[in-house]
Nucleic acid binder design. Structure first.
Lengths: 380, 380
DNA sequence: TTCAAAAAAGGAACCGGTTACATTTGATCG
DNA sequence: CGATCAAATGTAACCGGTTCCTTTTTTGAA
């Protein structure tokens, strides 16, 4: 069947060629191109709007109207065209539409990792909100590398996403310039942006959250408190949390010993290692604030491995409230972060901004201390 | 500055209009359009290949060559053009490129959920492999709904992804037709495809994995074994695992009581509920096979809540080996699934297929029983 | 029945790139 | 020094839609 058509088309073109006056160079060229096209036609099944138009006996403009402004088309035409569309299962080509409209109905999302379920939760929420509005998500995972993140964002801009949702505010100014040049709105999540910087964030307050965790320990009578957190050089969320730790320690008048503070990557092994060092410190802390649950769980494991009772001998507070925080025994005391709400709201704010071609409006969401089983009154 | 240009352009256009003979309608129209364009130009900063070409004093073809085939361009021209490109930070428009080349450098990935870390792991692996090859991932999350999945796939096809990675094989034949019509390769993950169906899968064997889990229990002397699994109506992975359960039960000559089998959604709460029912069964099983770790962990929690010792009074085997399986106490005995390798290989196979415009080649990966703390010799 | 106004449909420019083919430039050689 | 051929560049068609503007058809009132 397909072959048959191919032959049909080809011979039509050849006839056309043969019938030409030799001097008619331009037409000859056109015919050649026609031949090329029809040769391709046999391999490409893709139905275009012109095919539909031809078969329905209308112009492409009308087909387009049928699909996008049906009420500007007469009932009769509407039916005819829709029938042809249905017969072929025709779907308009999103790429061509994007080019013509200068809108891709796509938003870009860049996160550091997806395997930490807390990011998965916010990403899933973004996804849901985007889909509801007819948008698709282009996902980039930076694996905590600023260079990778830059590349990803550039790639997304090249794909002309209509908007961006980023994690944290810290990145090269060139990238911010590129985003600016693309003239698309973006919102930052997981970290509040300085209002001054003129960017919108939908986030919670990392600093206050961390203070909440620290205050809890302090109220339980802990004074010698250790810290495990992410790489504050690469990660502005970790930096905020660390700052809160340091402030609270200063306020309670405890000198922070440098072997009480450990920065580590986001996995359990690293959390364990950090806890090892804390336990080996000459003046062992009575409590540890782990600036994320992944590390907190690793730390908890290390204690259990070494036979150190949690919370009997050492208290642990995490941050994030990942689902796993409830599975470990004892269950982890932690700071609950509104990951899902944040994702959903961020997406909504972004889509609004895209709609009205304005700046997205930011928002700060509350965090909450969830007291479970890994913290107890200091015995010391 | 921008304004200045705008005025410049505008007056040029107006001069052009003014100089026209009134009868030259066509040219007049063209001039109008020119005006429109330049009006837009002031608001749109987007630099196009024509801007670069004009400024460098070459044709757009040459600019395109500079970017894609630099060795076909003379050294001098190359330098000139590259300088202009750099000056403007020009990035070619991916949408236009896609339209011209009929390739989007994009692959679509559809998964049921991202919050189950096992899917996150494979997705992240796909992401990594795609990025390494210059591809971007368009992610769709179906939330276990076949309708949503259909919509997502259709959306991806509309965006003209160059290939698809899907979860499981079971979906409407219309969707498979649509994919076929789009003439793009796809690979199925998480479930082996029938070779006969002519589709490639990069997966492990759910059935054998489930048998492995069941055999482990049987070898420990368990005969009264319960099952908790996903909705086998909606989920072909769950169905395979259930089939293995039933086959093994038949082989050991135990009649499966219907209150030993519970299908549930993929969350802990549902796992707990299922376990509640199992524990309440008149003839309580001595072991439970949970066809995924999320449910297994929920089940374990329920036991602990009710003061039923695991594995003392009841053994539990999970499936997937999510990271959380190691956090719970006792640690979960489970089947380790090669999520990361699967994602990576699936992406590679797909990209190969895209490259050579052929069918992807499938592959089956091994699963492994990981014996931890939730299983023990039957006491019965 | 006639004619103006409204509704429907069509023609073609346009989005921003790529590339086949044509043309120009430059180098080489008899 | 002109012919020849390769290298470099330009021209314009093309990808598959949308939409402005124009033309044609229909409607409805006079």
């Amino acid at each position: 069947m397909k072959k048959y058509f191919s032959i049909l088309y080809r011979s039509a073109a050849e006839n056309f060629l043969a019938g030409l006056k030799p001097e008619n160079r331009h037409a000859k060229k056109a015919a050649k191109i026609f031949l090329l096209q029809t040769a391709l036609m046999s391999s490409r099944t893709r139905v275009t709007i012109r095919d539909i138009a031809r078969e329905a006996g209308v112009s492409t403009a009308t087909v387009s109207r049928v699909m996008n402004n049906p009420d500007t088309v007469s009932r009769r035409t509407l039916e005819t065209v829709n029938a042809v569309i249905a017969r072929h299962g025709y779907l308009s080509d999103g790429i061509a539409v994007s080019l013509a409209l200068a809108r891709t109905l796509t938003i870009g999302v860049v996160i550091p990792t997806i395997t930490n379920s807390i990011y998965a939760a916010s990403t899933q929420a973004i996804q849901g909100a985007a889909r509801a509005a007819g948008y698709t998500v282009l996902l980039g995972v930076s694996e905590f590398s600023p260079t990778t993140e830059d590349q990803l964002i550039r790639q997304l801009l090249k794909r002309r996403v209509d908007g961006l949702i980023l994690t944290g505010v810290e990145r090269s100014s060139e990238i911010y310039e590129s985003i600016g040049a693309a003239r698309i709105p973006f919102v930052v999540t997981w970290k509040q942006a300085d209002a001054a910087a003129g960017m919108a964030s939908v986030s919670f307050d990392n600093y206050q959250g961390a203070r909440l965790a620290m205050s809890h320990l302090v109220e339980l009578g802990h004074r010698r408190i250790g810290l495990v957190c992410g790489r504050s050089k690469l990660n502005d969320r970790a930096r905020e949390r660390r700052r809160a730790y340091q402030d609270v320690m200063r306020e309670i008048g405890t000198d922070v010993r440098h072997d009480w503070v450990h920065e580590a990557d986001f996995d359990h092994a690293e959390g364990r290692r950090a806890m090892q060092k804390l336990l080996a410190a000459p003046s062992r802390p009575t409590a540890v604030f782990c600036a994320n649950d992944i590390q907190a769980i690793g730390a908890l494991f290390e204690c259990q491995e070494q036979g150190i009772e949690v919370p009997g001998q050492i208290s642990i507070v995490g941050f994030d409230d990942v689902p796993a925080a409830q599975y470990v025994r004892p269950q982890l005391t932690t700071i609950r972060v509104p990951a899902q709400a944040m994702g959903e709201i961020a997406a909504k704010r972004l889509l609004e901004a895209i709609d009205r071609r304005g700046e997205p409006v930011g928002q700060t969401l509350p965090v909450e201390l969830v007291v479970r089983g890994t913290t107890r009154q200091a015995q010391d």
